[in-house]
Amino acid sequence: MGWLTGAVAWLADGAHWQGADGVPQRLLEHVGLSAAAVGIGCLLALPLGLWLGHVRRGGAFAVATGNLARAVPTFAVLVLLALAPSPFGLGTTSTLTALVLFAVPPLLTNAYVGVLEVDPAAVDAARGMGLTSSQVLRRVELPLAVPLVMNGVRLAAVQVVATATIAALVAGGGLGRIIVEGFGRQDQPQLLAGAFLVLALALAVEGGMELLQRRVDPLRRARGRRRTAAGAQLQVQGGSS
């Protein structure tokens, strides 16, 4: 258990919590980059996914995007972008681009399936009441799709936090940097301390997103605490990295 005390001692050392490579700074980099990537991913993927679900088209496209994303190693994409010419290369643009690329598939698939699985009777009823196509999407399909859309956001956030960690292997900052530098110096307490910090952040993001997922569901009282079978099924659709 010596390794554990070493990691705890590293975390307890005040010197590791200050300066440009201190824990707060690394945490800020990690969270900032991840939040930006999920935000940009949402802007790109959610309108497209919701619209594809609304017109009931592009299912093969949404599924293929998800499958392909699973087969492509995040690490390889990070390195390919790092060696690519300007505006890529070693730097934030490359890392952010890679993170957005891996945030999009779960967002797209879940938004698409979320709208697709809305009870057709509800859509028919809305049409019968004279709602236009875009009103049906905004007032009926979107509210009913919120749980799955948020499931996609949660999967994307978890994926992005994990990928941002790997970015440290390439050049990026973030908490992964602490692990990678620990490996470089063969400093086991440091790399384990870094791993614990990354683990804590990942669990906090997962927990926070789950809370948010429940909070923003406009129909949460009607639904109770039950989760749809489709939601459970889709949880395994996210890749891990």
Partner: peptide, 11 residues
């Protein structure tokens, strides 16, 4: 699946 791979391999 929540655990980032780099952290898991390190741990």
């Amino acid at each position: 699946y929540t655990v980032p791979s780099l952290a898991l391999f390190s741990l």
